[in-house]
Nucleic acid binder design. Structure first.
Length: 536
RNA sequence: GGCGCUGUAGCCAAGUGGCUAAGGCAGCGGAUUGCAAAUCCGCCAUCGUGGGUUCGACUCCCACCAGCGCCUCCA
């Protein structure tokens, strides 16, 4: 599409952004106003480290990695905290099963988690507090709640008394009366079924710490209240986590923290959708299946369902997924859906996202051919102000500025990465169109003005991609493609084929190309010569 | 049963009370190419079903259908 001349006017982006976030607490989008000007404190609930992480564990970190990148880009000083819960019933059970000490198990699984985050390019987390390193704080916090009358000691356990907290249920919109609580031995020690443990007396053989109430260990929830307070303060800006943590985990955190401190724990509660695994083929995740497929499935009673991945067979160790797929493709999959929506997981979907990335990679190669510059070494802007540029009336620059502005608007709107990505594609299309219209590939080279225009485009792609954690470095070549001998052999075949093409022996030329294609080697003829690549 | 979320083209997925309902994949037509590939241009949806509110809804309300999460640490 050609830009009408009347619209070729300068476009500028505002340096200060108006960011809106959806908070589970209010149930609507709210303008983000930080506790302290220019600063944002974020606490994200991390894993209980008793098993290797699966892809579901990557959703929150990747999303909040993007959120931090964007807020930083907008000029905020952001502190991102992700806790590691390393004391819990599940850890105790699993360590017994494996014949390990609990700390040894926690250490192993924490290392696995951190390795996976690193592989995914999540390097924006400032603190990884661990529950077992904060036992003193947990005891003090618990004692504070007892002193204030919100908690009571019962036979070595300490429970939070839900009935004492008038605000209880405000996050998950549940009434105290509706809480059934767990049954069994613990129920007998509680005043009300909904009361939950802040501290659990130790059973024989369990890890335990000394406390005013005897030997024991922290309950679930309390560590997050304590650690978020210790690092971010009584009231911080954003508390995040998976949708499955709304109740009871976050509800109980709020109860503990706000009862003790008498002020809100967090201004905004952001919850990401859960990754789901398809049990059967076809559309899942809340959509109806229609037409012939539905009839067939119905007849076979194979109504497809999806399930939270952590409870499905799809929850294999993440490191196995990393061995097969590019981290950047996995990242793109995770951010191609709005963070509050469920993401349907399948390996096919990762492959589709890898193919989407090729559009960008091909443009980067094209850019290198035309300008001699490596896109990855360009000095991409790291803030909105830095990235602003004057478009003048050049149609390409106007389009770039327009798409960039639209992209940022999407990000302002509750971090709408899926919408923003659409503009990223539009930008590449505009740049390719520019190259086509000016026939730059045939000329083998761009002129000065054209180089400047393309450079601006490449800079914008890097700038906006960088917000999403994309295009930070060149993707690793497929292992098979890195083989030196393969390169030489393919080079020889290309040479033979091009000689055949010169003598118009197209049968021979096509045979070489087709046979190579069958082996997964793709050839592309262009003015400057023939390129080849290994098909994924 | 309760609370919450979701249902947009063959597939993935944004979005809006009323201009042409983003973008990607696939498909079709064209440009380009010796032929391809890549790239560009064009085509391809009335928004789960049924009501209601409204001058007007896909976008608000109700019901229904379908799916998902949680309803306490149990496995």
């Amino acid at each position: 599409m050609t830009i009408p001349a009347t619209e070729s006017k300068p476009v500028s982006t505002k340096a200060t952004r108006n960011i809106r976030v959806y908070s589970t607490l209010s149930g609507r989008k709210e303008p983000m106003q930080t506790v302290q000007p220019g600063k944002v404190g974020i606490y994200l609930c991390g894993p209980t480290v008793y098993k290797p992480s699966h892809i579901g564990h990557m959703v929150g970190p990747v999303i909040f990695d993007v959120i931090k990148r964007y807020l930083t880009y907008c000029g905020y000083q952001v502190t991102l905290v992700v806790n590691v819960t390393d004391i819990d019933d599940k850890l105790i059970h699993e360590s017994k099963n494996r014949g390990l000490t609990m700390p040894a198990l926690a250490e192993e699984m924490t290392a696995d988690y951190l390795r996976n985050l690193a592989a995914m390019g999540v390097d924006t987390i400032d603190h990884f507090p661990r529950a077992t390193a904060n036992i003193d704080g947990i005891i003090r916090f618990t004692q504070g709640l007892i002193d204030k009358g919100f908690a009571y000691v019962s036979d070595g356990d300490v429970y939070f008394e839900v009935g004492k907290d008038s605000g209880y249920g405000k996050l998950s919109r549940r009434s105290v009366e509706a809480q059934q609580g767990e049954g069994g031995e613990m129920a007998a020690r509680k005043r009300a079924p909904g009361d939950f443990a802040l501290w659990k007396g130790a059973k024989a053989g369990e890890p335990a710490w000394d406390s005013p109430w005897g030997k024991g260990r922290p309950g679930w929830h309390i560590e997050c209240s304590v650690m978020s307070h210790a690092i971010l303060g009584k009231t911080f800006d954003i508390h995040g986590g998976g949708l499955d943590l709304v109740f009871p985990h976050h509800e109980n955190e709020i109860a503990q923290s706000e009862s003790l401190h008498g002020q809100p724990q967090a201004k905004y509660w952001l919850h990401n959708g859960l990754m789901q695994a398809a049990d059967e083929v076809g559309k899942v995740g809340g959509r109806q299946t229609r037409g012939a497929d539905a009839a067939q499935l119905g007849a076979d009673q194979q109504a497809q369902t999806a399930a939270k991945i952590s409870k499905s067979k799809g929850a294999g160790p993440f490191r196995e997924l990393l061995a097969k797929h590019a981290p950047e493709a996995i990242r793109l999959l995770l951010i191609s859906t709005h963070y509050r929506s469920p993401i349907l997981f399948s390996e096919d979907e990762i492959v589709r996202n890898a193919e989407k990335l090729e559009t960008f990679y091909r443009f980067f190669k094209r850019y290198q051919r035309l300008t001699g510059e490596d896109v990855y070494t360009l000095p991409a802007a790291r803030s909105a102000a830095e990235g602003d540029f004057s478009s003048g009336d050049d149609p390409l620059l106007v389009e770039l500025a327009r798409q960039r502005a639209a992209y940022l608007d999407k990000m302002d709107d509750d971090f709408n990465t899926a919408g923003a990505i659409g503009h990223l594609f539009e930008i590449v299309t505009a740049l390719n169109r520019y190259v086509e219209e000016r026939k730059l590939e045939a000329a083998l080279k761009a002129g000065d003005e054209e180089r400047a225009a393309l450079r601006r485009g490449a800079l914008v792609v890097r700038e906006l991609g960088g917000i999403l954690g994309l295009f930070r470095q060149a993707p690793k070549a497929p292992a098979a493609g890195g083989d030196e001998l393969v390169g030489k052999l393919v080079g020889l075949l290309i040479e033979l084929r091009n000689e055949a093409r010169k003598t118009k022996n197209f049968a021979a030329a096509d045979k070489i190309r087709n046979e190579l294609a069958a082996m997964g080697v793709k050839l592309e003829d262009r003015a400057g010569g023939t390129d080849w690549s290994i098909a994924k």
